[in-house]
Write a protein that binds this DNA or RNA. Structure first.
Lengths: 125, 125
DNA sequence: TGCTATGTTCGAGATTACTCGTACAGACCA
DNA sequence: TGGTCTGTACGAGTAATCTCGAACATAGCA
């Protein structure tokens, strides 16, 4: 994988939602998204599953790490969620104890149109 | 990256071309293409460049390893071309001394529609 | 205060990938 | 026969990644 983009904390507390959400964790800006990083992040079956499940089964809102029901140690999950966030695939916000994730659908469709469709049509092995 | 698919030598000497081409080197069949392998292969800038250049500048036919003009040792190039072939992104045929490559456009568009468009619209860093 | 639940950070070990030099193989040609 | 040119195979060193255990941090609650 290529070098990750530098992080910038985006401030949009009152812009993208009526309710004031917690600020997102550090993530690359839209213009900093790198195709090679995104590809590298999706080169792992577990991470592919995370993004796909978030896209298709996330009824209304962000989901916690435990919502996925993976039988893996917590530190492993932290690792993969962090990889997805640093590549720009998901946005994470801290809600008290829980850290909830959502797919950066708008940004990704804007920058890499068709990419999320590939993930959605992926059938797990 | 996930485990690579098993190889099968496809025999299509008289099917896909009027002229009889040399048989392709071992490569995964269409049904064996794995999204995570493809993503992993495209997670490298040099390999992204290879596929993109083959797509956009390959006027009529397959191209050799040296056509790209990379300033890298030969063994490194072999490594990356092999990675692309094993992931199913390119097809390689042996023409005497030269090993020529082309993108598996039809297969990829059939299996992962939109993927090659992402590669084509990639701007190199 | 103490317990529980969520998730992080750190570090180690194992595995995989990348890079490259060297040696080798085969086709072509003088 | 010998030289050149294309590209492979193998191995070593380096770097990155994956996986996981252990210890830690914090919010909520009784």
């Amino acid at each position: 994988m290529a070098a990750a983009a530098q992080y910038v904390t985006t401030e949009n507390s009152a812009l993208d939602a009526p309710e004031n959400l917690p600020d997102p964790l550090p993530e690359p800006l839209i213009g900093e998204l790198q195709l090679e990083d995104v590809m590298g992040a999706l080169a792992d079956p577990l991470r592919l599953t995370i993004v796909r499940k978030l896209m298709l089964e996330s009824d209304s809102y962000d989901h916690t790490c435990g919502w996925f029901g993976f039988d893996r140690p917590k530190s492993s999950l932290t690792h993969h969620f962090k990889a997805l966030r640093q590549a720009g695939l998901i946005r994470q916000r801290q809600y008290g104890l829980e850290r909830r994730s959502r797919v950066r659908t708008e940004d990704l469709n804007d920058r890499f149109p068709g990419l999320l469709d590939l993930v959605a049509s992926w059938h797990e092995a």
